[in-house]
């Protein structure tokens, strides 16, 4: 095959859901959580994997880490079939679950790390280097002796990320790594992930609901909904696919009726201020020139499309299709 570190070919996961349909009768229903997904992630790439709740993100991650066995399709991570060789794969991947810690709840961070060192048989020199690097960059020095249960969410997350990297994994999976974190913690985590990716060339796959994560970290984004891949490509192109729009906010000298211009439509009027919407693909310059020629303009600004809106539109469309 190609040089992909992560390879999925028509991967499916079907769950049997039993539901009560009467006093004794039970209805069996099949739910296709992941419905034929194919993609390849080459070594060294940082990919964002996004989708609404229940879209199949976590199920995909669970199959990629060997937790869940796929119902169909072909799946390889570093050449290993995850569900068949779970423990062999475990030595080569790092996993961070935002919602739950992989650390030992009652133990100080340092003890957890020591246990990880022994469990993964990490050579002493590698362990020292990796721990020092994580402690430095993730600001963990004062936390090493603190039991995990006493850490704040942001501290715990940083502790978890360090634990996932001590054994030099080739791939790092992060399932919602910034969920519930404050702005400072988020920034710290992002900065660290960026350095891991660019400096160490680590392959990173992260799921998130915070699209700022994607904007700041990922060159490539995959959108999944109803178990299917809706989009796979660059972040910039996502705007075009999502038919996103830019907004021109204009302050006129006085109140005007909604202006009509070719290639734009007036979305809102508030006193002398008007919001004109136009396609993200076209330039604002002719629009501005046209406006200034027709009416006295005091001030104007262009608002870029918000990625949230773009994604939301995609989700809405895919729901309409189903």
């Amino acid at each position: 095959m190609s040089d992909g570190l992560i390879e999925l070919d028509g991967v499916e996961k079907v769950f049997d859901v039993r539901r009560r349909a009467g006093l004794l009768r039970r209805e069996r229903r099949q739910v296709r959580a992941v419905d034929g997904i194919s993609f390849t992630v080459p070594r060294g790439e940082m990919v964002g994997y996004i989708g609404p709740n229940g879209a199949g993100k976590s199920t995909t991650i669970k199959m990629l880490t060997g937790i869940l066995t796929p119902s169909g399709g072909r799946l390889r991570v570093a050449g290993i079939d995850p569900s068949r060789e779970r423990t062999r794969l475990a030595r080569r991947i790092g996993v961070v679950f935002g919602q739950r810690t992989t650390l030992w709840w009652d133990l100080p961070l340092r003890d957890s790390y020591q246990l990880v060192r022994r469990m993964y048989r990490i050579p002493d020199d590698r362990y020292r280097v990796n721990l020092e690097r994580c402690v430095e960059l993730l600001d963990l020095r004062d936390l090493l002796e603190v039991p995990v249960r006493q850490l704040s969410l942001g501290q715990r997350m940083r502790g978890d990320i360090a634990a996932a990297l001590l054994h030099d994994p080739e791939v790092l999976y992060l399932d919602e790594p910034t969920i519930g974190l404050d702005v400072v913690s988020k920034a710290k985590v992002r900065e660290f992930l960026r350095s891991v990716n660019t400096e160490q060339g680590m392959t990173v796959l992260l799921t998130t609901h915070d699209l700022t994560d994607i904007e700041q970290l990922c060159s490539r984004v995959m959108v999944i909904d109803h178990g299917r891949l809706m989009y796979d490509g660059g972040l910039a192109e996502l705007h075009a696919v999502g038919e996103s729009e830019r907004t021109l906010v204009v302050d006129f000298e006085r109140e005007l009726p909604p202006v009509e211009l070719p290639g734009a439509r007036c979305e809102r009027v508030d006193g002398p201020r008007q919001w004109l919407v136009f396609p993200a693909g076209s330039s604002a310059a002719p629009l501005v020139a046209e406006l200034a020629a027709r009416h006295p303009v005091v001030d104007l600004s262009v608002r870029e499309p918000v990625i949230e809106d773009v994604i939301a539109r995609m989700y809405a469309e895919s729901s309409a299709v189903v």
Binding site: K62, T65, G66, I67, R86, T87, R88, A90, R91, I93, V95, F97, Q99, R100, T101, T102, M119, Y120
Partner: peptide, 14 residues
Amino acid sequence: RDGTLDTLLVRPAP
């Protein structure tokens, strides 16, 4: 129930 079993399944040990 709380899903923490998953964290054991990503470690290289039975």
